[in-house]
Amino acid sequence: MKEQLNLNFEEAIKRLEEIVKKLESDNLSLDESLKLFKEGIELSDYCNRKLDEAERQINIVLKGSNGELIETEFNFEEE
């Protein structure tokens, strides 16, 4: 998984699509297929995990006393 840490979700999905297409094209050696398969499974696990990990959060940007912008939690229901 180390090599995928620097991939974002879109890149991971894109790579996953590539791998599936490649595997479907069918003129690969067994070694290559296994390697791609392993990578594909890792990528899909990674994508699934990313989706599951995501948490809802709603923030608002406010101007601080010095005019700097601060992001804080935004509780819409209380508005």
Binding site: I19, S33, L34, I41, S44, N48, L51
Partner: peptide, 26 residues
């Protein structure tokens, strides 16, 4: 969310299927 999940899982299925086919053929 469900569509994305579905997409990823269907890719995963395809991966397994491809490899199985490859092995069967080999």
């Amino acid at each position: 969310f469900d569509e994305l999940k579905f997409k990823i899982n269907s890719y995963q299925e395809t991966l397994y299927k491809c490899l199985n086919n490859k092995i069967k053929k080999d």
